[in-house]
Every structure is written in structure tokens, then in C-alpha cells.
Amino acid sequence: MTARRPVADRVDEFVLSSASGEPLPAWSAGSHVDLVAPSGVVRQYSLCPAGAGSYRVVVERRADGRGGSMSVHDDLAVADEAWISVPRNHFALTRALGYVFVAGGIGITPILALIDEARAAGRPWRLLYIGRSRAEMAYADELAAAHPDHVTVHESRVSGRLNLGEALAGLPRGTAVYACGPAAMLDAVADACAPQPAVDSFTERFTAAIADRVPSEEFELSLAMSGVTLTVPEDRTILEALDGAGVVAPSSCREGMCGTCETGVVSGEVDHRDAVLSPAERSENESMMICVSRCTSGRLVLEL
């Protein structure tokens, strides 16, 4: 790590560069990396605009989390080394006539690069940045000062809860709405956009969405490349069943959030339970996140 600074209460910015001095791989707006905290826990962080060849991530210290952010804050210092993955992108900016970005708290991190890309494309855009107080909102003052006609900062402790249904009403056709933040905010964004013609919404979640699903049932799993066939019990995930059978598959978060375990589907109907694939990608039934998603057709064949 080459630099670190606080950017809000309990929120620090970390600049990462290659230990070899070589530029880090190029990335696109909306990308994230896995970072191994000093404690050994792997967490995913969105990439923010940074100098050429470097990465910038922003981490909120969460005492009520699972320990990853606390380890990064407490144990990672300038000049320390940390392992990171190559960037992956499940939140890329689609082509649209205009954009509305909605960020809740630390959800501003992937939005920063998306704003830069929208500006570079010359498309109309605006940002709704929501947080409890300005002191807890990374880059709020900088964004408002740099783009006063495009950025609305909403402090809920001062102004109360923002009605997103009203804030997002009447969007022009061809608008794409990108949102990152707490689940309740993302649900409100989706509800506000759903009835509007030719308005699409895209979200990135901190945790996987909880939805009504069919109960988990046992199913047969076949691996097309290795020829292995096994049973996935109702109380185990595909990834856990593969672990038990000695089959190695890439994984990281094991919560359907990061996309590391995405695996091609040869045949079988998938119950998608991740927060990565879009509705269109799910309907294509060509891949799945094997850490959380399951099979509803009794038999599933994967490209493993």
C-alpha cells in the first residue's frame, strides 16, 4: 500500500500499487477487487478513480461487520503488502441517453468511476447521495463543490428520510439508474423505476437480496469436464458439496456477492440466489454462482 488517508468518519482511502513497480492491470468503471485483510479474511471493495497503474479503494470501519474492515483499518499501514485479485466487473455502465446515480453511504465508491465514465461520454447525469450526516459521507463536499448542478447531498439526520419514489419520478425515457447502498434503499429505487417506461435500474448490493424462493431440495450434480457425479443435499450448497468431494472450484465471498465462483451451466434449471447476475443473464441460464444458487429441475450439469 502506498498511501492512506481518512475521507469521512470511520472511512479511510487506501491507494494500492504493485510491489514489483509494474502498473496494475487496467480496469473499467464498476469493477471491484478481492482484498485479503491482514487477518486473512477476504473482502470485496469497489475501485475508485486513481492514478495510472494504481488502485484506490475506500473502506468503512464496521464494528458490527465480520471483521474484514476492522482488520484493514487497524492492521494495514502504508508500505505493508496485501494480496488483491484482478478486477472483476458486474456493475458496468450500459449505454443510455442519461444517467441517475443513487449512492447510500459507502455505496458512493463504485459510483465515482461510473460518474467519470458518464461525463466522458457527454451524457446527462445527476447524483443523489444519501447518508445520515455529511461527516459520514466520503467525498460529499468534494462532489458537491465540483458538480453543484449535478449533485444532491441528502443528510437524513437533518432532512429526514428521502422519498425516493418522488425523487426518481418522471425520469426521461432512456434513463439508466445505478444505485449502490443498503438493501432498503435499493428496493426503493427498483420500485420507483419499475413502472416508468424505458427506464432501467441497476444495483450493487452490500449483502445478497432476500427473496421468496422455493424450498431447497436435494438434487443430482454432474460435472461435464471431470465426469464426477454427486448429490447436493438440501442443507448444503453446491460449493460445499464440491469441497466435500475434493473438487476445487474458485470462490471468495461464499455469499453470492463477488462473482468469483461463477460457473457455466450445461443443463438444468437454476434457482438464482446471487446479487451479481442481471435479470437478463439469469433468464439466459448460461451461468450461476455455485456458492448460493441451486437447481430446481432435479439434475444439474456444470462446466467443471
Results as ranks from 00 to 15, higher is better:
E262S: 13
V248E: 15
E262C: 10
E284K: 12
V247W: 11
V248F: 12
G259L: 02
S251E: 11
D274N: 05
E269I: 00
D274W: 02
R254V: 01
V266A: 00
R282F: 08
V270T: 09
A245V: 06
I238A: 06
T237H: 04
V265M: 06
T263E: 10
D243V: 00
L242W: 05
A241N: 08
T237V: 01
V247C: 12
L239N: 06
S278T: 15
A245K: 01
H272C: 08
A241W: 03
C253A: 08
C258N: 03
V276A: 03
E255G: 14
D243F: 03
V276F: 05
R273I: 03
V276T: 07
A241E: 06
A280L: 13
A245H: 14
S267C: 00
A241M: 02
G256Y: 05
V248K: 13
L277N: 13
C258H: 04
V270N: 07
A275G: 12
C261P: 06
G268V: 07
E269T: 13
R273S: 02
V247L: 12
D274S: 03
G256N: 06
R282A: 06
L242M: 13
E281W: 10
T260N: 04
L277G: 12
R282V: 10
H272L: 09
A280S: 14
H272Q: 09
P279W: 11
E255D: 11
E284W: 09
T260F: 03
V270E: 05
P279L: 11
G244L: 00
D243R: 05
R282Y: 10
C253M: 07
A241F: 04
L242P: 05
R273K: 11
V270Q: 04
M257I: 15
V276H: 04
G259I: 01
A241V: 04
E281R: 11
D274I: 03
C253K: 02
V276D: 01
G259T: 00
T260Q: 08
S283L: 14
A275W: 02
G246D: 10
C253Q: 03
E269C: 00
S278C: 10
R282N: 09
E262T: 14
A249V: 14
V248L: 13
L277P: 12
M257F: 10
G268F: 05
E284N: 11
H272T: 07
E269F: 00
P250C: 07
A241H: 02
I238P: 07
T237R: 01
L277Y: 13
A280F: 10
L239K: 05
H272I: 06
H272E: 08
V276R: 04
V270D: 07
R273G: 03
P279R: 11
V276W: 01
A275T: 02
E255I: 01
P279N: 11
C258W: 03
H272K: 10
V270S: 07
S283T: 14
G246C: 09
S252Y: 09
G264L: 07
G259F: 03
D274Y: 03
A245N: 11
P279S: 11
V276P: 02
A249Q: 15
S283A: 15
G268W: 08
I238Y: 05
E281Y: 11
G244K: 00
D271M: 12
G268D: 07
I238V: 15
A249T: 12
V266Q: 07
P279K: 11
T263L: 08
R254Q: 13
T260R: 05
A249L: 13
